[in-house]
Design a binder for these strands. Sequence first.
DNA 1: CCCAATGATTGGAACGTTCCAACGTTGATG
DNA 2: CATCAACGTTGGAACGTTCCAATCATTGGG
Lengths: 342, 342
Amino acid sequence: MPTTSTEPTRRRPTLHDVAARAGVSKSLVSLALRNSPKVSPASRAAILTAAEELGYRPNRTASSLVQQRTHTIGVHILDLHNPVFAEILDGVHEAARQHEYSTLLVTGNADRQTEKREITRLLESRVEGLILIAHRLSDEDVADIAAEVPTVVVTWPIEGIAQLDSVSGDDALGMRLGVDHLVALGHQRITHLSGGDNRIAHARQAGYEAAMAAHGLAPRIVSGGFTEAAGYAAAREAVGPPRPTALVVANDLAAIGALAAMRELGVNVPGDISIVGYDGMRLLESLDVTTVTQPLADMGRQAANLLIERINQPGRPSVHSRVATGLVPRGSSGPCALESSL
Amino acid sequence: MPTTSTEPTRRRPTLHDVAARAGVSKSLVSLALRNSPKVSPASRAAILTAAEELGYRPNRTASSLVQQRTHTIGVHILDLHNPVFAEILDGVHEAARQHEYSTLLVTGNADRQTEKREITRLLESRVEGLILIAHRLSDEDVADIAAEVPTVVVTWPIEGIAQLDSVSGDDALGMRLGVDHLVALGHQRITHLSGGDNRIAHARQAGYEAAMAAHGLAPRIVSGGFTEAAGYAAAREAVGPPRPTALVVANDLAAIGALAAMRELGVNVPGDISIVGYDGMRLLESLDVTTVTQPLADMGRQAANLLIERINQPGRPSVHSRVATGLVPRGSSGPCALESSL
DNA sequence: CCCAATGATTGGAACGTTCCAACGTTGATG
DNA sequence: CATCAACGTTGGAACGTTCCAATCATTGGG
């Protein structure tokens, strides 16, 4: 070991140091720094300058320990790369800040195992509540967690678990809107690029199937995923004969991938094929892509508010909020060019 | 206040409880749970089952307090909406995890004031180091922070501050590459859509000006920003006569906005006008946009590694790492259609 | 048979804060 | 002048852990 000239790194000043310098007790310093009204103006001034001069910083760990509160909520988010989640987070942050909660953000885009480990860490940090945004856990795992700490799941409802609330879009309705939109434009051969093997994907796929059935149309599904790459691959597969005239894609990112595939294949959008995405991420406006929208920031806000309510009132019955789902028609979808295939 | 039937919410089990149940002392429990080799197999087994049965969870706050270490680094990121930052974060997370550090992620996309407040929170949580990804602070603020805790700034170098390292791309080179690429394609009227009034934007603008000068070309700059909306607006302004044949845009997000503007105006890309972005975010591959790239994840990884090095060796001299910057030609840039205007 | 050495276990101090009951001062009240 | 309330202030306990020195039990060597 090389003996680095590490200067003794003098200990950070504590309440005690400030007290000594201001000539009062640590208790009074504590009160003063938390703006208690019972501190005389004189002492307060002395304390404040002493703290300033020493560069005092309160130690949150110590304070959390004795207060038995951390004023922190844990947020677990599946994947930061999808801008959708950033938009949800905006809402979470806003609401949390409003109620003077900090957030502890972790991401688990690897497997279920690391996801569990990350959440364990949050619990060890004694977060007062947990928001799970698009997780990969089993229902039992979620129930276990919810039994331990107030929890809100964002993106789909899980009914029947105590102490658990949820905020979700209406995937059945959303898919219905997407399909209706295309049918209204004259499309019949509408293929769904699925989101792969996970909960949201299944719900959306089921929604698609139901919507097609409602129109008496035959569903066709190509399995994909929630990334650009997956959408790209699925789209290339989907255009094989019989070529569909429209694609409803499981999410926006995959829709972007699908768009890329069409460009590469020289297939004109929306002339030859229409594309509809799902999620309503902001970027799609610039890209002029039709999509099913959800009030993302609002979902985050609701999640945080529900959580904080439950923290303050642990016994209250579960709330499962479904947010409004809509469709924004844009340039990626247009009238069907083919004569009706009937 | 309604008297909610809040069951007494029995206290979480502590080391003490586990010790009592296993019939040993709390010290031994502590050792056992940290896999100390000095615990007999018998006690270890007893302790582990007791902990399991009670659903014991170590309390990180308490442990941090006594250890005077949190094993946590704070990450402040400007804006989660820009996927670029998500990619940098990937690297940070990976490296942090490798060294058994947790990360505390905060975002400050509002003003400088909230940014400072958020960082204060991190310091109060006693993070052992800080990574600032594209901050808005003054140099003095950064120096103050670095004096208090090891700090790494990502996205541009700040020389001359003790205890501070940095990881940055080479904006001058990057812009040079962008301009060179366009000039090689025959462009001369190359307009820069700037990133607004901030550090990175200035560096990139300066790089653009230098590159143009090197080719003996007259610079033209339209001031914009780092968002889609800003890029959109700037691009609309930029196409006014004399119309440029190419745009070098301050970042990728703005380039997407510029693309949207061109589509809306019916200007063909790259037929009528070429567009080059900056940052190298993954999404641009799908959108087939030429851009200046940086090894984003690697930047994050380097930042975390530098930080951890410095935590372990506070006295070591500052390192300012510059990562490789390159250009990926894609479909948004092509040969200049105009005959040379000379 | 004792002593030293090894291994396993323990109690108490410490970390920096908040909370609480108690304290001294002051000024007004009877 | 005694009593009381209000106010400002204080010391000590507590939070749940880790660290350390000290203790206890066990073994082996002389």
